Simulated scan of single mutants.
Amino acid sequence: MTFEGIKEQFEKYASEGKKMFTTSSFQSHSIVLLHIISRINKDIQVVFINTGYHFPETVEFKDRVSQEFGLEVIDLRSNTPKFMQRGTDGRLLFTSDPDHCCYLNKTQPVDALLMQNDIWINGVRADQSAVRKAMKMEQPAPHGTIRFHPMLDWNAKMIYQYQKEYNLPKHPLENSGYLSIGCEPCTRKVDPEMMEREARWYGMSKTECGLHTDLVK
């Protein structure tokens, strides 16, 4: 979808009285959508899902980007304290049950946020995974909310070209070999033969955190 197409869709939602928000992981490739939003409507709420496990560099990058783009970013946190996020062996869930860890720290908080909004602007791209390739530009989500995927038909080359055109900042860990950056315990550097998202939950049969599997219909 082009910039003009995204702008037109935002204006349509606004004219219908729809309440919009977006979530961002604040990776280099994800700030393209944030920059587009900043050019169209800075009043759209930007949500950073703060799991408490992010790299310090990600938090610093979030602060820098939000200031440069003039966006107000809110932190969304789990209602379940970390001392309760342990398995029967006493270990934190990211070591024993990463799916449940993601549910408590990402999926459950966003599910609650959906109840307060109409449109979830989401930056998934079809070229990122098989799950995302099967998605549509607009899809229903829980609680009567609509997921809008304006970047779905963008690819890595288009992201790079946009970054270059607008001289967008890069996540500080990207030059160290990190391309898909999530929570620190579940992220590793990308090897040359790996797909981008294979660096997440490496060695596990897991490629999504639940946001794009549980919170979509």
Rank of each mutant, 00 (worst) to 15 (best):
E8D: 12
K12M: 06
Y13R: 05
E16W: 03
G17K: 09
G17L: 09
G17C: 08
K18I: 03
K19N: 05
M20N: 04
M20D: 04
T23E: 00
S24W: 06
S25H: 06
Q27W: 11
H29F: 14
S30C: 04
V32H: 00
L34M: 10
H35K: 10
H35L: 06
H35A: 03
I36A: 10
S38H: 00
R39A: 08
I40N: 01
D43Q: 13
I44M: 05
V46H: 02
V46P: 01
V47Q: 01
V47T: 10
F48T: 01
F48A: 03
N50W: 00
H54A: 03
F55S: 03
P56F: 04
P56R: 08
P56T: 08
E57W: 09
T58M: 04
E60W: 11
K62Y: 01
S66G: 08
S66D: 11
S66V: 14
F69M: 08
F69P: 02
G70V: 01
L71Y: 00
E72N: 15
V73H: 03
I74V: 07
I74G: 00
S78V: 04
T80H: 02
K82G: 06
K82N: 12
M84P: 01
T88S: 09
R91C: 05
R91K: 15
L92Q: 14
L93C: 07
T95E: 15
T95L: 15
D99N: 14
H100I: 13
C101D: 11
L104K: 11
N105F: 11
K106A: 04
K106R: 09
T107G: 10
Q108P: 02
Q108F: 12
P109G: 09
P109C: 10
V110M: 11
V110L: 13
V110S: 00
L114V: 03
L114E: 04
M115P: 04
Q116T: 13
Q116N: 13
N117P: 05
N117M: 10
D118V: 07
I119V: 12
I121S: 05
G123F: 12
R125S: 08
A126M: 08
D127W: 11
D127S: 09
S129G: 06
